[in-house]
Design a protein around this nucleic acid. Structure first.
Lengths: 195, 195
DNA sequence: TTAATACTAGAACACTCATTCTAATTGCAA
DNA sequence: TTGCAATTAGAATGAGTGTTCTAGTATTAA
């Protein structure tokens, strides 16, 4: 005989949403369990009923965002390098909160220690997927995979788009059109290897 | 009648040096007053004898580094834009620790609150000096100072160099030669406006 | 020698959290 | 209706850390 308990007021995802909201609005320093809970009018106990620790909650939230970004990025990259290079700015326009989280902060700003064990696999997988996407692009585009061509590809596909977008997120503004221009011009110069 | 007290074992600068060392080696999270003090075998009391609070100590350390970077950068910029664009990577090679502090972390990672009052003026001044240096470059180079030309100049002079260097500092390695190439090619594309 | 002073020394305090613990609810199966 | 389990509820706990406080020590002028 299976007996169901009371209905839940709060879902797992809602806690992660609330955490994201706190980080984006008030910074990682304000992200206490109490702030998170009171932000959704939930008691502290309910947080710990669903997540074994603060770090697990935040790590899962982080991974959820990385995954949602990376999936689209890799799809764009498989199709066209310039498209991938411009993907970041478009994604940020559609997901301003997730964008702020990913571009303005780092894992260490949120988690107190290392990745929780059962999530490390996921992070490794995500980072390998990104890496191999960029590697295969570099090889295809430059005809060879060396430290230099890999660095060049990473620069054009990742570093520059992030650098172009970040200042505007910092200001809390959506990236203006000039950002797309800067990314495109840089991509063409770096990938074509203009001198 | 003036009476001199005992000789000091520790100087103001040594505390800031020790703080920098801790941040660079173990991250901002490890930067406690106790860690700082024990790192230089000084007692906690001596820290507070010289600095009224943790925030003042760290803010002064930060400003010292910003000042040392910015002075050279503005000098280079007054002479030549490409030189300024390449200044960051060279400065980082000569000052790996200061580079890590400035490029890997932000004020909020170190200070618990806002800038201490008496230091806010200095920060405002520094940031205005940088701003006006970039503005006058943009105006000279593009013939007009608009939101777009300013953004373009900032991108080429600041955002891209930081983005190119950062991944290597992250790894704890000095930036390889390819970084200079990437910065130069980007600068030429962005400032000349190649399409 | 002595007194005044600048400094070292580190234990005690106060405060902020993450986490734990116990009790109170609530919905369903019987 | 009753009893069980899922969940809410939030007060109590404990660890970590910035700051304060009191005491001790070295240096120099007189």
């Amino acid at each position: 005989m299976f007996v169901m308990g009371r209905k839940a007021h709060f879902k797992r995802d809602e806690f992660m949403d609330a955490a994201l909201r706190v980080v984006v609005e008030r910074g990682p320093g304000a992200l206490t369990i109490a702030a998170l809970a009171s932000g959704m009018k939930a008691p502290i106990g309910s947080v710990y009923h669903r997540f074994p620790s603060r770090d697990v909650l935040l790590a899962e939230m982080w991974i959820r965002v990385v995954e949602s970004f990376q999936q689209g990025f890799l799809a764009a990259l498989a199709c066209n390098g310039l498209l991938a290079s411009l993907y970041t700015v478009n994604w940020v326009r559609e997901h301003p909160n997730e964008g702020r989280l990913l571009l303005l902060y780092r894992r260490e700003d949120l988690l107190s220690g290392d990745w929780p064990d059962h999530l490390r696999d996921q992070i490794v997988r995500l980072s390998q997927e990104l890496d191999s996407g960029i590697r295969s692009f570099a090889e295809k585009r430059f005809g060879s995979l060396t430290k230099e061509t890999l660095r060049r590809a990473t620069f054009a596909l990742v570093d520059v788009p992030l650098a172009a977008v970040r200042p505007h997120l910092q200001e809390g503004q959506p990236p203006p059109g000039i950002v797309d221009e800067l990314i495109r011009e840089t991509y063409l110069a770096i990938i074509r290897g203009d001198k």
